[in-house]
Design a protein around this nucleic acid. Structure first.
Length: 299
DNA sequence: TGATCAATAT
DNA sequence: TATATTGATC
């Protein structure tokens, strides 16, 4: 039962977001009041004003970024259309993408997983913010978000290399011992071996090294046996004290496809979205699943 | 120019 | 502390 070691690659985003992670996530999508009502079933599926839905065909399964305004204040009307929320209270409420201050991005284990996977597919040398961002295809994610995270991630890798070369056992904390939240986040997604080596050559488990013209898509599709993700919906409070390998349970993640900022650059390395896997049904027309993410308030 | 990186700010 | 922003450089 411990084959996750080698199969971690196949479990794309199986990790389970802790309740605390879901909170900010949901909060940014729906107001507390809404949550209280909880009965809301998307009165009008057409509610989202998504202004610019059309233009460039978004080839990749977009992902929802998890934004949280401020943990302290009760999330009120925050809805930079990151999630396409229909706030309408914003300045203009329709062309905010620019010159609008987005809430801080929260790098959830899921998001980070996606990040790591993108980097792994690109290889360290090609892994630059813009490319990573495009590969991740997360709605609302900016190049700077990725750049910032990448910076930290590189430091983490460097640190890890240093630790490894010493005794091979990663238990040596250089600076103030103890793993910080950062370490845990990074630890939640295994670092591909080639990252730690100076080997620029990278390989990916699946992903049929697309030859020039043969870009097949859809490959991943978690080979697992019918995954009936049940929803125990337990009221997790906090996991054990050590969720090291972070093999949590499965949870549906928010998926909202609204806008696509993927710009086709002629000089771009052209990344095939083949590796992306879809979690649960991502029915944009059906937004009621989002509600299932709410902590039933039952404690 | 635009992107990346490292440093710095919040 | 985690992420955003800035500034130098490519």
């Amino acid at each position: 039962m411990r084959e996750d070691d080698s199969n971690w690659f196949f479990k794309w985003e199986d990790e389970l977001p802790s309740p605390q992670e879901l909170m900010p996530l949901t909060q940014s999508l729906i107001t507390p009041d809404l949550a209280l009502a909880f009965n809301i079933q998307n009165p009008h599926p057409n509610t989202h004003p998504t202004p610019p839905p059309p233009p460039p065909p978004p080839p990749y399964p977009p992902h929802s970024a998890a934004f949280s305004s401020q943990p302290n204040s009760s999330a009120e009307f925050d809805s930079p259309e990151l999630s396409g929320a229909a706030g309408g209270s914003g300045p203009g409420s329709d062309e905010p993408a620019r010159t609008l201050k987005r809430p801080r991005l929260v790098w959830t284990p899921q998001l980070h997983k996606r990040f790591v996977d993108a980097v792994a597919h690109l290889g360290i040398k090609n892994a630059v913010p813009k490319t990573i961002m495009q590969l991740m295809s997360v709605d609302g994610l900016t190049r700077e978000n990725v750049a910032s995270h990448l910076q930290k991630y590189r430091l983490y890798l460097k640190r890890m290399q240093g630790s490894m070369s010493n005794s091979g056992v990663v238990g040596n904390n250089s600076s103030s011992g103890m793993d910080s939240a950062t370490d845990r986040l990074f630890a939640s997604s295994p670092v591909p071996a080639h990252f730690l080596h100076s080997n620029p050559d990278h390989f990916m488990p699946f992903v049929p090294t697309m030859h020039h013209h043969h870009q097949m898509a859809a490959v991943v599709a978690a080979p697992g046996p019918t995954h009936h993700h049940h929803h125990p919906q337990p009221q997790f409070r906090h996991f054990g004290s050590s969720p090291p390998n972070g093999q949590f349970e499965h949870h549906p993640f928010l998926r909202h496809t609204t806008q696509s900022q993927v710009q086709r650059s002629n000089s771009g390395p052209v990344v095939p979205p083949s590796y992306l896997e879809d979690l649960d049904s991502g029915n944009a027309a059906n937004g009621k699943k989002i509600l299932t993410l709410f902590p039933t308030g039952d404690d």
